[in-house]
Nucleic acid binder design. Structure first.
Length: 504
RNA sequence: GCGGGUGUAGUUCAAUGGUAGAACGUCAGCCUUCCAAGCUGAACAUGCCGGUUCGAUCCCGGUCACCCGCUCCA
């Protein structure tokens, strides 16, 4: 059981060693955006590449034991805005919202009704549109100064002029004038295409990478010789207007996803496929070094299922025990049943046939979709949290215990002293090794300092050239977690390190 | 979006209405030693804008960012 590391320690290590910086740091940053520094970029790329390998290059065997086909795409962040109308993102999540300053409650403007007195005197009362008559009567009795419901007319809130807001009593308060003016809540970030800004050329930055996977379904079936069941994978940036960016890179407005949409026959064993992906994806997180005790499956209840997943085999999140929520868990990846929702929607909105033909039966059908949607940037955070290890017995006081397969630097080459021909041997080894993996060559300062520096950035192996090297061509290899050393011949160093990089 | 807190060097922290310090890190030189990251030296900071004041890093206002609690998170 490892200790919970405060987020601020992780954030400051990231800054100090060049993993992650606030975006536009010199201007004071910008809420919800982060820049990846030299080591953070290596780390993120490593996680990204391993995902691609496990999903696209070497996907698992299917239910029948045959290798699955997963193909990749890399689509534009900006797509035709109709795509987001079809997906439900434009209309579903851009309703004007207003707040009550008194109760701190938030309402959708179109869900509220107003009881306005017919003589224009006194306060107007605001209710939820589905408020019970009993509730309305009770509040009128209390707040309407002798008037009865017959003295009021009902109007919807959007019809109320802003100048009248000071006269409104909110649904959950007794005071007038506590409601803020409605503001549009935009889930999606938008921009305008072309020089002139206007509603005609409004476009959206994608809120998820899967939208354009679905719109490419037909192109891929027509050109890529894939046959159902198969998957389409994509890694890329997405954007979302989070109300409150929070918890370092966990909830940010620009983030990166690793998604795969799996298309199968609706008559196929959906539950079987779903379980296959669910387990395969968890195994993958374990394979890059997250520990089982920090991972959790969370099954969505009917109430919190997304609009596309109300039916079907459900939705599971793979969750991680991030320090800011521990001992609880928060989302890392979603394994969701998207049913035939997306392809049906796109067929409706585009008037293009988004179906697939079973060549045995000549039957056309809309494929059934299962989604694995992992957060790459959330993965980086989970890996950083998992790796941060306190160790008071070493100079750095801590080390980053990240799996060698994702470590930003695989090895550091350190001549014990900067003389006696040691730097020359070190540089020769460095030139050889850097052809195969990211390695550091560090000659300055004493050896303890250099080990400490490598511990802080999670380098799994430190290779030290010492006086004995010139005698018998051996070096020491120091293992990061144990600090134990063994002597290895120079010719075998590369092989030794390579042999220890993979998941085992 | 609301409420509360915080903002001093790359990091972690001091101090002050009148010349802003330390540790670690970084860089240079020295040393040559397998990890209490040695020795000497150097560079680097009061988030931003405005107000009060002879003078503001300190007091006040605004703003931005971060943290906590709500809200939000298809």
């Amino acid at each position: 059981m490892s200790a919970i590391i405060p987020m601020k320690d992780i954030v400051s290590l990231c800054k100090r060693r060049g993993f992650i910086f606030p975006a536009s740091d010199i201007y004071g940053g910008v809420n919800g955006f982060w820049d990846y520094g030299p080591l953070g970029t290596e780390l993120k790329n490593n996680i990204r590449d391993l995902w691609w390998k496990s999903m696209v290059i070497t996907p698992p065997l299917g239910l029948d034991g045959a290798p699955l086909q997963i193909v990749g795409v890399d689509t534009a962040i900006i797509q035709n805005p109709t795509l987001w109308k079809a997906s439900g993102h434009v209309d579903g999540f851009s309703d004007p919202m207003l707040d009550c300053r008194e109760t701190k409650l938030r309402y959708r403007e179109d869900k509220l009704i107003v009881l306005k007195s017919k003589d224009g005197q006194g306060h107007a009362l605001v209710f939820h549109e589905d408020a019970e008559q009993d509730t309305i009567d009770a509040r009128l009795k209390k707040l309407a100064r002798g008037k009865s419901s017959a003295d009021f007319e009902t109007v919807s809130l959007p019809e109320i002029d802003l100048s009248e807001y000071s006269n409104l009593i909110g649904p959950d308060t007794k005071k007038a004038g506590t409601l803020t003016e409605p503001k549009e809540f935009n889930l999606m970030l938008h921009t305008y295409l072309g020089a002139a800004a206007g509603e005609d050329n409004k476009a959206y930055l994608r809120p998820e990478t899967c939208g354009s996977i679905f719109t490419n379904f037909k192109n891929i079936v027509d050109t890529s010789r894939v046959r159902i069941p198969f998957g389409i994978a994509q890694i890329g940036k997405s954007f979302r207007n989070e109300v409150t960016p929070r918890n370092f890179i966990f909830r940010s407005r620009e983030f990166e996803q690793m998604e795969m949409q799996f298309f199968c026959d609706p008559k196929d064993d959906i539950k079987g496929w779903f379980d296959l992906w669910k387990n395969y994806r968890k195994e993958w997180w374990l394979s890059i070094g997250l520990s089982d005790e920090n991972l959790n499956f969370h099954e969505h209840t009917q109430d919190d299922l997304a609009h596309y997943a109300k039916e079907g085999v459900g939705a599971y999140d793979i969750e991680y025990k991030y320090p800011f929520i521990a001992p609880g868990f928060d989302e890392l990846e979603g394994i969701h049943d998207r049913s035939q929702f997306d392809l049906s929607q796109h067929e409706k909105f585009s008037s293009k046939k988004m179906q697939y033909q079973n060549l045995q039966t000549n039957e056309w059908y809309t494929p059934y979709v299962l989604e694995t949607s992992a957060g790459l940037t959330r993965g980086v955070l989970a890996v950083l949290c998992e790796a941060y290890t306190i160790d008071e017995n070493r100079p750095s006081g801590m080390y980053m215990n990240c799996h060698p397969s994702i470590a930003p630097k695989k090895a550091a080459i350190l001549p014990l002293v900067a003389k006696d021909g040691q730097p020359e041997i070190a540089q020769k080894l460095y030139m050889e090794m850097r052809e195969h993996m990211p390695v550091d060559l560090d000659i300055k300062q004493n050896i303890g300092k250099r080990y400490a520096r490598q511990d802080e950035i999670g380098t799994p192996f430190c290779i030290t050239i010492d006086p004995q090297t010139r005698e018998d061509q051996t070096v020491t290899i120091r293992e990061r977690n144990t600090m134990a050393q063994k002597r290895v011949h120079l010719d075998q160093v590369l092989g030794y390190v390579q042999g220890n990089l993979k998941y085992s």
